[in-house]
């Protein structure tokens, strides 16, 4: 998932000459069409349909008629305290995971960029969670956090601390615990992306700053970090989106419990749609999620752009 690319058009533009090989844009169609058609049918169309469903009273079941009901769903949603609680949980989850993930990954990437022994092992380990299905990551952490058998409680017990904490079943701590698992699961992408960014920072810049007597910390702050900024913006944006929309990990870990304290909005909407069959209402939730996250991203990216221009 390393879609950290600079926008494609920003690449150093080659001299704008038309490649002699090409027969113009029209030749591209037959090649692109097989990709375009299914994408249109199974991704553009459902998305448009999904957005529209948010304005209907669509319901699961045979022979149920669907009517547009304007903003009824949203009026109802505005008064649905459970949804907003879940939305708040989703924001706490997404921001905490993204920020912690970023800090932890930046630290690891900086270390991996140094000339340390065992670097290869750490690099491999850093990649492993990426290769694991979220379902299995969840299973693994359930074992880790098992109240009776899990090594986390065992270790606490050995240290003389209370060793019988029900990590995933205690409503006051379930969310922070799930956030830690989220960080573990998402570190690889962020680490590798940042590492690639670090390696593209010209060494000369740092050397020059070092010769000028800048301390390690100052070099990091004034040379490395600014050079990394575009990549940081890209990866944190993507992480935030992915985390806000994530589903499988928490679904298997806690299924939203205990007492709804880890009920991410995606789980909430899933239940609404596929447990209670309220398709229209669930789609409306999806719409609200897109709009709010979209607004946030707009301001975040605009702020980053301005900073870059300065």
């Amino acid at each position: 998932m390393t879609t950290i690319a600079r926008p494609l058009d920003e690449r150093p533009t080659r001299p704008r000459r038309k490649p002699r090989l090409s027969g113009g844009g029209r030749d591209a169609w037959p090649l692109v069409l097989p990709a375009l058609l299914p994408v249109m049918l199974f991704s553009v169309y459902p998305l448009v349909y999904g957005v529209l469903l948010g304005f209907t009273d669509a319901h699961a079941g045979l022979g149920v008629e669907t009517h547009f009901n304007g903003i009824d769903n949203y009026v109802e949603l505005a008064g649905n305290g459970l949804f907003w609680t879940s939305f708040k949980i989703g924001l706490i989850w997404a921001f905490s995971v993204t920020i912690l993930q970023f800090l932890a990954s930046l630290g690891l990437a900086l270390l991996l960029n140094l000339d340390l022994r065992l670097r290869w092992l750490a690099r491999t380990l850093a990649l492993v969670p990426w290769a694991m299905p979220p379902v299995i990551i969840a299973i693994m952490w359930q074992l880790m956090l098992n109240p009776n058998y899990g090594p986390v409680n065992r270790a606490l017990g050995a240290l003389g601390l209370p060793g019988d904490v029900n990590w995933l079943g205690e409503s006051s701590i379930a969310l922070p615990v799930v956030i830690v698992v989220g960080v573990w699961a998402g570190m690889p992408q962020t680490t590798i992306t940042l590492l690639a960014g670090l390696q593209s920072v010209p060494a000369e810049l740092n050397e020059a700053a070092a010769i000028d007597g800048a301390s390690t910390w100052r070099r990091f702050w004034h040379v490395t970090l600014p050079a990394l900024r575009p990549i940081i913006t890209a990866i944190t944006t993507l992480d935030l989106i992915w985390n806000f929309n994530s589903f499988a990990l928490v679904f298997v870990l806690t299924a939203g419990g205990p007492g709804g304290t880890t009920m991410l909005p995606s789980l909430f909407a899933y239940n609404e749609a596929f447990r209670y069959g309220n398709f229209g209402y669930a789609a409306a939730m999806g719409n609200v999620m897109v709009v709010l996250i979209g607004v946030f991203l707009f301001f975040y990216l605009r702020g980053q752009m301005r900073r870059r221009l300065q």
């Binding site: 999904g50 669930a282 719409n287 897109v290 979209g294 991203l297």
Partner: peptide, 16 residues
């Protein structure tokens, strides 16, 4: 397509 929550896509896909 990355921004949209899966719930918006899965309901229509399911119906389709």
């Amino acid at each position: 397509s990355q921004v949209f929550p899966f719930i918006l896509i899965i309901i229509p896909l399911f119906l389709l």
